Amino acid sequence: MSLQVEIVAPDRIVWSGDASQLSARTVEGEIGILPGHEPMLAVLGNGDVLVDPVGGQRETVTIDGGFMSVDNDKVTLVAERVDAAGLGA
């Protein structure tokens, strides 16, 4: 099983793909998402989002706030500002 992840900025899709796990900072603390996670909505804090792609190396995206939705192994993060300098080519 895997997660279908999409990280979105106001002007573009920053990262999209299948991942084995994801972690992010919410306003209530750090959270890790694995396949089978309960549905949830969360307000994101500033910080790094770490994505472990299926069959790939960890990707890091730095965000400034936003929100995250998790439902049926689909994770969508919408961020106000995104620094994707940590993404691999």
Rank of each mutant, 00 (worst) to 15 (best):
A79I: 00
M68D: 03
M1D: 12
A85S: 15
E28N: 15
L77A: 06
A79R: 03
E80H: 07
V49I: 14
M40S: 10
L3P: 10
G36E: 05
T26Q: 15
A79G: 04
S23W: 10
S69A: 04
T60K: 11
S16D: 07
I7K: 13
Q57T: 08
K74W: 02
E28T: 13
G47A: 01
V5A: 11
G86M: 07
S69C: 01
G66V: 03
A42N: 03
E28L: 15
D18F: 15
V49N: 02
D48N: 08
D18C: 13
D11G: 12
V5Y: 13
S2M: 13
V78I: 01
S2Y: 15
G32M: 12
V5C: 12
M68G: 03
G66W: 10
A42K: 11
P53I: 00
G56W: 02
T62S: 14
M40V: 00
R58I: 02
G86D: 05
L3G: 07
D48Q: 07
M68K: 06
V8I: 10
L3H: 10
D11R: 11
S16N: 12
V70Y: 06
V8T: 05
T76C: 02
R58F: 02
T76W: 05
V75T: 09
D83N: 15
E80N: 04
G47K: 05
R25T: 12
I13P: 06
M68N: 04
S16C: 13
E6L: 09
L41Y: 11
A84T: 07
D64E: 06
E30H: 15
V14P: 07
I13M: 09
E38N: 10
F67D: 01
G36P: 05
A24W: 13
K74F: 05
E6S: 15
L3T: 03
L3I: 03
P53L: 00
G17C: 09
R12W: 04
G47I: 01
L41D: 02
D52A: 09
K74A: 09
Q4I: 01
G29S: 14
H37R: 11
R12C: 05
G86W: 14
I31A: 14
Q4V: 00
G88P: 06
V70P: 01
V70M: 09
